[in-house]
């Protein structure tokens, strides 16, 4: 039997529904809730059931025709992984070095990953943009952007 996209999808959601149903049973109930027609568990339980039924239906009716298999060739997963890692790094950088520097690093990193290598372009497309956004946020819109924790530790918060 060929494993096709519908099988993977159906199986994923079946497992998800089972796990969801298990945790739905763990939701604490209030005293007296057993006599109530509607509790915090009602909808989650119904959804777990519904999810289970639908995913089994998808598994049963899965399209096994040609082109239904999962094809991963031709996709650039490593670049996407690097970009998402850059996003996570941006979140960490925001806490440590503040909005302005984090933005510049994020943009230069993004341009670099996507193939831009000219130093001038890297700088021109990031520094003025980041400074501009930072100025609009802090000066024009009066939004407080916390300086990075690193600066607080060096210069005292």
């Amino acid at each position: 039997m060929n494993i096709c996209k519908d099988h993977i999808g159906g199986m994923t959601f079946l497992l998800l529904s089972v796990a969801y149903g298990y945790y739905a049973g763990q939701i604490p109930l209030l005293p007296g809730d057993e006599y109530e027609p509607f509790t915090a568990q009602t909808v989650p339980n119904a959804l777990a059931m519904l999810g289970g039924i639908l995913s089994i239906a998808l598994l049963v009716t899965a399209d096994r025709g040609e082109g239904s298999g999962l094809k991963l060739r031709g996709y650039d997963f490593s670049l996407v992984a690097k970009l998402l890692a850059l996003v996570v790094f941006f979140a960490l950088a925001l806490e440590w070095i503040g909005f302005l520097l984090a933005t510049i690093v994020f943009l230069i990193g993004g341009y670099w990953l996507l193939g831009e290598r000219r130093v001038k372009t890297l700088l021109v497309a990031s520094v003025p943009f980041a400074v501009g956004i930072w100025a609009i946020l802090t000066q024009l819109l009066d939004i407080y952007l916390a300086p990075g924790a690193l600066f607080n530790q060096i210069f005292g918060g």
């Binding site: 998800l16 969801y20 959804l47 999810g51 239906a57 998808l58």
Partner: peptide, 12 residues
């Protein structure tokens, strides 16, 4: 079916 499953996923 897939759309229905996604709807339930959204509700979850």
């Amino acid at each position: 079916l897939k759309a229905l499953i996604m709807t339930v996923f959204g509700l979850m």
